[in-house]
């Protein structure tokens, strides 16, 4: 119950943490010449909100059996998760420099055998929700009061297995399970822009023409829509989702509209920044875009 003894951070503190997280993602990937940028930046506000305000977790006790679980099903955004875990105290921030290097705890995709504090190994897409549902099922069987959160990408929902798990979670009324969709509207390459009203960015939305919220509702889920960059709103939505545990009700999906590459002028809405390595000039620009002078002065 570590969070109970700590004052909740202010919205402004979370915003600054997210900006710092974005900077660490971009600069680490730039130094290490490997990593996925776009989805890491789109997910950052949510990851910071979860790890600093919502999840009942203590970095000094990563194996606490009663901790809230978190699974990054879109495992290619591992650098975002490692960054937030570092800021939260699971590992030294300096260790981010070992990302993707030999003998590192920070593998290209999250490996629970390497880094304490990871609840699942992910990488091959579509699999995290099933693991989270299994945790939620066994938690209920054992009378555990924690909540399991799983973050998925919108492109990831093209994997058929996701829908097996969506149906299963509904069948078992897993109200202790929360799926978070980082709906950034892009995937690695995707489809050519058709100029239609659903095309938010330079490639077509992974689910253009499909009402994902209605699909989830049809499967019996509690659907909440939110701006995935509005930290005060995210705090409210995630807290409310946690409070639904024990209601013998429906699992909750937080459908978060986000911008892939959020916060950096040259990556926002650019599918080509799914992965990529920033040049020194681009890093200088990102430093300005993210207001890092102000963030670092705090």
């Amino acid at each position: 119950m570590s969070t109970a003894t700590k004052a909740r951070p202010t919205d402004e503190e979370l915003v600054r943490l997210a900006q710092r997280g974005r900077w660490l993602v971009l600069s680490t990937v730039s130094r290490k010449k490997a990593g996925h940028i776009g989805g890491s930046l789109s997910a950052m506000d949510m990851l910071v909100t979860l790890y600093f305000d919502i999840l009942r977790r203590d970095p000094s006790r990563p194996d606490d059996p009663d901790r809230d679980r978190f699974i990054l099903s879109k495992g290619h955004n591992a650098i975002a998760l490692y960054t937030v875990m570092a800021l939260r105290g699971y590992l030294p921030v300096e260790e981010l420099d070992t990302f993707d290097q030999g003998d590192s705890r920070l593998q290209g995709h999250p490996d629970l055998l390497r880094l304490p504090g990871l609840d699942a190994s992910t990488g091959s897409l579509g699999q995290g929700l099933a693991v989270g549902a299994g945790m939620a099922l066994e938690a209920r069987r054992r009378g555990k009061d924690f909540t399991t959160f799983v973050m998925l990408g919108d492109g990831e929902h093209q994997e058929g297995m996701v829908w097996e798990s969506v149906a299963c979670a509904s069948r078992y009324r897993l109200d202790n399970l929360v799926a978070i969709i980082d709906r950034n509207g892009l995937q690695q390459y995707g489809w050519e822009h058709d100029g239609g009203p659903d095309s938010r960015f330079d490639r077509l939305d992974p689910w253009a023409g499909v009402d994902l919220c209605a699909v989830y509702r049809g499967f019996g889920w509690n659907v909440v829509e939110v701006d995935g960059h509005d930290i005060p709103a995210l705090r409210g939505v995630f807290s409310a989702a946690k409070e639904r545990r024990g209601s013998n009700g429906r699992p909750t999906v937080v459908m978060a509209t986000t911008n892939k590459g959020r916060g950096v002028s040259f990556t926002e809405g650019q599918y080509k920044w799914h992965n990529g390595v920033a040049t020194d000039e681009q890093l200088a620009q990102a430093h300005i875009d993210l207001g890092m002078d102000r963030v670092e002065a705090q």
Binding site: P65, D119, A120, Q127, L129, A130, V131, G132, A133, G134, M135, A136, L137, E138, A139, R141, R142, K144, M161, S165, C168
Partner: peptide
Amino acid sequence: GIAAGMASLGA
């Protein structure tokens, strides 16, 4: 996947 999740809690 469900089995892996349940096993992580000791099942």
